[in-house]
Amino acid sequence: MRKYVSVWARTLACLLVLVSAAAAEATTVRVNYDVGYGNRITLRGSKSPFSWTTGVNATWATGNAWTYTWPDSVGDVELKPMINDATWSIGANYKVKAGTTVNIYPFFQGRAGTLVKINNFSSPQLGNTRTLRIYLPPSYSLNPLKRYPVLYMHDGQNLFEAATAFGGVEWQVDETANSLINNGQMDEVIVVGVDNGGANRIYEYTPCCDPQYGGGGADVYERFLLETVRPYINQNYRTLTTNKNTAIMGSSLGGLVSTYISRRHPEVFSKSGGLSSSFWWNGQALTQQVEAATAKVAVSFYIDAGTNSDGLTETTRMRDALVTDGYVQGQDLYSYVAQGAGHNEASWAARLSIPLTYLFPWQSTVY
């Protein structure tokens, strides 16, 4: 009897090993989308078992996750989901590496995001109020299963509407994001535009303290973002809250404060964008801090400047300081020189696609 038990045990062990190996060699995609009763998700792709001419049926599971699994011996695959093998998802193909499980949150209609305004938003830290302008990406109302990275931007009144923008020139953040998302160059993100404090702008956006302009309220503004704005956004919108999915960006003094805050709080912001940043502030004190740093901060930086009286010399010095600290161009640093560009909203709008696609490239969201 023991002999037969031993044989059975060995056979079972072999089967478990084979099952485990098969599982380890499985590549899986999960398409998270509610297609409605009677509809289905199909997949077309670049290699068998897929093709670009006829879709394979994914299997529905509770929670509206449509799943399909294939051997990882197929190799890396590009694919795209469809509804009823008739309606393509919007954006680029999805790249699936062999042996991985990839979650996809597509959308199939509606190519424009929406703008929500929260007026009279109170800052207990700064003792004032302002407007939050929140861009919700195209799929926000179409795919309630999806959560999104968040980009916090300063000078919110300049971002979306000419009527409130400085000089009547807006950044066109919503139009640019819509285009990049639809073309598959950028992941969908929620953009939170935080209006500046008007006459208090210099104070709010600057570390202490420039001999000519004073300032010094950046730490208080930082607390406003971290203790009031961000919790409100995370409580009221479907956000991804890890630092890998959270960025901060601005221009001029807004670029300065973005760099300053992200270096102090990489546990919150893993990505930082500065267009024409005012690195000249207080004798380039922030750049000196970077030059004196003994450890690299885990933040990916975008910095740029134009060639027309736009602080290119100071930005170049900051770039060199970051490179010395170990940042690598094209990896965790993107330094850009905008030929002929000046220090104004029109110049920033014209090159906005560059930082957006660097900070949030297609299929970079960490779910």
Rank of each mutant, 00 (worst) to 15 (best):
N120S: 15
G91F: 01
L180R: 02
S179C: 01
Q109Y: 11
N120L: 13
L145C: 03
V150G: 01
N128E: 14
H154T: 05
N182K: 00
F107N: 09
P124E: 05
Y140G: 05
N182P: 01
L132R: 08
V96I: 15
L132Q: 10
A165D: 05
L151M: 14
L115N: 06
A165P: 03
F160S: 02
T164L: 11
R111C: 00
L136H: 12
G113Y: 06
M153I: 05
A163C: 08
G110V: 10
Y135K: 04
L132V: 10
I90Y: 03
F160I: 01
L115R: 10
Q109I: 08
P137G: 02
N128F: 12
Y148G: 08
E175I: 02
K117C: 03
P137Y: 02
L180P: 02
T129H: 11
Y135R: 03
Q172M: 08
P144F: 05
Q125C: 04
W88T: 09
L115H: 07
A165L: 06
G99R: 09
I181L: 02
G168D: 12
A98N: 04
K97R: 14
L145I: 05
Q109H: 10
Y105G: 14
S141G: 13
T114H: 13
I181N: 03
T114I: 11
L132K: 12
N120I: 12
T87F: 08
A165N: 04
N178Y: 00
P106V: 05
F107K: 02
Y105Q: 11
S122F: 10
V169T: 14
G127E: 09
